Amino acid sequence: MTEYKLVVVGAGGVGKSALTIQLIQNHFVDEYDPTIEDSYRKQVVIDGETCLLDILDTAGQEEYSAMRDQYMRTGEGFLCVFAINNTKSFEDIHHYREQIKRVKDSEDVPMVLVGNKCDLPSRTVDTKQAQDLARSYGIPFIETSAKTRQGVDDAFYTLVREIRKHKEKMSKDGKKKKKKSKTKCVIM
């Protein structure tokens, strides 16, 4: 069974824990209790493949930012979460993405942009803004509501699919490099 290491990042209060708990335990946590770091595991079937999701729910508070490099190193894919009623959390996505790329030393890291709290009427981040940002990053965008469960499975499952595509691409690139290195030079 394939294991996928997913990391949920975003500013404090955007609903990272609520999304994760909704996926794992099928219930909505409405009281806000700032996370330092929590880890969850769940076995699911995605596109006919049974897999184990190892999900790291991270601290959004700035005082825990020193811990970010460590979990970013171990993560295979990242859910970059903002709240649709919090423009600052949307603007912060850029910083999370840049930090992930720096730590992973790669421009090509599996990510999904997630606009959470889409059940709320007080939207300050337009869907088109988020779609445009995701398009500019070359990553999928999904709106979710941890409260109603809308888009929750889709967000995590899409990230797994992005990781699969990335692994497939990397193995193809690896095979191309191996083929090239088999060419021999004969000096007579």
Rank of each mutant, 00 (worst) to 15 (best):
D132V: 05
E107H: 04
A66M: 12
E98A: 05
M111L: 07
Q43L: 05
A146F: 00
I100H: 06
T124C: 09
G10N: 02
T74S: 10
Y32N: 02
D105N: 05
D119C: 08
P110C: 04
H95G: 12
L133I: 08
C185G: 13
Y32L: 02
K128R: 07
F78N: 03
I24P: 00
F28Q: 01
Q22H: 09
I21Y: 02
G77Y: 05
G12I: 12
I46Y: 11
F78Q: 03
M170K: 05
D173C: 12
M188T: 09
D57Q: 00
E31H: 14
S17T: 02
K5V: 02
I100N: 02
K5H: 05
L56R: 02
Y64R: 02
F141I: 03
R123I: 07
L113Q: 03
V160T: 09
D119Q: 11
E62K: 06
R123V: 09
E168G: 11
G12C: 12
G60W: 00
V45P: 13
S181H: 02
S39N: 07
L53V: 15
T20C: 03
L120S: 13
I46A: 09
D33G: 01
K117M: 14
I21C: 12
Y64S: 02
M188P: 14
V45R: 11
M72I: 03
F156N: 04
G15N: 01
V109G: 03
K167C: 06
E62T: 07
G75K: 04
C80F: 15
G48K: 10
V29E: 11
A18C: 09
D57H: 00
A130H: 08
V45H: 07
R97V: 15
G15A: 01
V29S: 11
V8I: 09
G115D: 07
N26I: 02
P110F: 02
C118E: 06
R41W: 03
K176R: 04
D69P: 09
M170F: 11
E162N: 12
D38Y: 01
Y4M: 15
M188A: 06
R135A: 12
H166G: 10
T35I: 00
A83C: 12
K165E: 05
E98Q: 12
M72P: 15
T50W: 05
I36V: 02
V112R: 01
R102S: 08
G13H: 15
R73G: 10
E3G: 12
G77C: 13
K176A: 15
A66G: 14
Q129L: 06
K165Y: 10
L52I: 14
Q129M: 10
D33E: 02
S65Y: 09
K169M: 06
D108Y: 05
D54Y: 08
V125S: 10
K88I: 09
V45N: 14
S122E: 09
D154F: 06
